[in-house]
Structure formats: structure tokens, C-alpha cells
Amino acid sequence: MKKATTFSIILTTLFYLLCGCMGYAAFGNNAPGNLLTGFGFYNPFWLIDIANVAIVVHLVGAYQVLSQPIFAFVEKKAAQAWPDSPFINKDYKLSISSSRLYNINLFRLFWRTLFVCFTTTIAMLIPFFNDIVGIIGALQFWPLTVYFPIQMYIVQKKIPQWSVKWICVQTMSVGCLLVSLAAAVGSISGVMLDLKVYKPFKTMY
């Protein structure tokens, strides 16, 4: 698992650095957010289709993983608030095939469907995807990817304060914090520029 994680992080980092650095080196501030369609042409069409399918597969999986804690939290609170409600707590058996029965909870079905519709509508209302993702990424990168793992590493390895290793990891943490702040500022600036020409439900390239 450790080898797989290390390999995936190195590969992902290399890929993003190549896209970001080469795009900026070639086009500067005019580098498009969408490298495939941002230049105004859509050929070869099969390459665009493959990329879109890959994005859908990636986001569907990520959406499920990130949404499950929200689903669990709301459903737990609802069950605690209304323990006698059959709408919230009762499961119904649904036979889709002769060999298997599925448990259907009406509240779970209704609430999760409503949540997906709501988030999809919000996503369609906000066409400047890159800048929003940039803000979210900047806000979560330093605390979740850098700060907390470093603090856990320091505690686990019992690294003494102000030792060389402690100073090195803390310096790296501060450096990543500055990168996150710069990314957040850039993304917020991009959103403000996008809002000047914003039209709901219209894709922006």
C-alpha cells in the first residue's frame, strides 16, 4: 500500500507539474484552464471524448467517497431526532431480480436524490469550474495534505523541537502554506474576473 501510494503521488505530482509549468511557459497568463478545448478546437474528437469519460469516471467515484460522510451524518441525526418515523427508519424489501432482494429506505432515497440534484444545479450555475476547484484545493491542501500529516509524523517519531529534522519539516510546512495562500488568492481573483462576464448555466471557455 505504501509503495502504491508513493508511486501514485509521484506520478500525479509529475503530471500536474508538467501541465502547469509547460502550459504557463508556453502561454503565460493566457494558458487555458482546459488544455484540450481551451484553444478553440475540438479535434481529434475521440481524444476529447476519452478525456471527458475519464473525468466522469473520476468525479463519480470521488463524489461518492466525499458524499458518504455527509449522508451518514444527516441520516444519523435524522434517525436520532425522529426514532419512531417509518419514513426515516423503515427499510422496504425490493425485488429487482428473482435471486436478490434490496433494502430501500424512503428517506435515504429522497434525501440523497435531493442532495445530488441540488449539488448538480449549483455546479451548473457556476461555470468557472477551474477557479472554484482551485479555491477548494488551496483551502484543503495545506491542512489535510501537509500540516496534519507532518504533526502526526513529529508525534509518532518523537522528533524533538528545534532539532534539524523538526526545522526542516516545519519549513516545508510553511512553504506549502505560502503556496496554498498564493493559489487561493489567484483562484479568488479568477472568480472575481469570471463574475464580470458570468451567465448562469452557460459554459465558459
Rank of each mutant, 00 (worst) to 15 (best):
K196S: 09
L144T: 10
N52Y: 07
W162Y: 14
F118M: 10
F141A: 11
L11G: 09
L14I: 10
I136F: 08
I154E: 00
T203L: 13
L59A: 12
D49R: 14
N89M: 00
W46V: 14
N130Y: 13
W142S: 05
F7S: 15
L18V: 15
N89D: 03
S98Q: 10
G28C: 04
K77W: 08
A182L: 13
G186W: 02
I126V: 13
D131T: 04
L14F: 06
K93A: 14
S189Y: 04
G137L: 02
S180M: 03
K158V: 07
K165W: 05
A54R: 06
T5S: 08
Q140S: 15
A78F: 05
F45R: 14
A81R: 13
F39M: 09
I88C: 01
S173C: 05
S173I: 08
V65A: 14
K165E: 13
A62S: 12
L125M: 02
L114V: 07
P160K: 03
G40P: 02
Q140G: 13
F118R: 07
S180Y: 03
L106T: 02
G190M: 02
G175H: 04
Y205R: 13
V179F: 02
Y24V: 07
V133I: 13
A72V: 11
V57C: 05
R108N: 11
L181Y: 08
A182P: 08
Q68Y: 15
L109Y: 03
A4R: 09
S85A: 04
I150R: 04
K93W: 05
T5K: 08
V164D: 10
Q140R: 15
P143A: 00
F45L: 15
T145R: 03
V116C: 07
M1H: 11
L195I: 07
Q156F: 11
G61I: 04
C168A: 14
V56P: 00
I167F: 01
Y42K: 10
F115A: 09
V146M: 00
G23C: 02
I126S: 05
Y16F: 09
P83F: 00
Y42I: 13
K76C: 12
W166F: 06
I50Y: 00
M172N: 08
I96K: 11
N34V: 08
V179Y: 01
L193S: 15
W46D: 12
I122F: 01
L106Y: 00
L109M: 09
A25Q: 10
P32M: 01
Y92E: 06
F15T: 15
T171W: 01
K93F: 06
Y102L: 10
S98G: 14
H58S: 14
A183Q: 06
F141M: 10
M172C: 08
R112I: 07
I167N: 04
T12L: 11
G20E: 03
C117L: 14
I88G: 00
I136E: 05
I70E: 06
Y198A: 02
C176R: 05
F73C: 13
K93H: 08
A31D: 08
S85T: 07
L18C: 14
G40I: 04
L101G: 12
I167R: 06
G61W: 04
K199I: 11
F39T: 12
P86T: 05
V60I: 12
T13W: 00
G38A: 01
P32H: 00
P44M: 02
F129I: 14
S98L: 08
V60M: 07
M22L: 15
K93Q: 13
Q151F: 06
Q151K: 15
V174A: 09
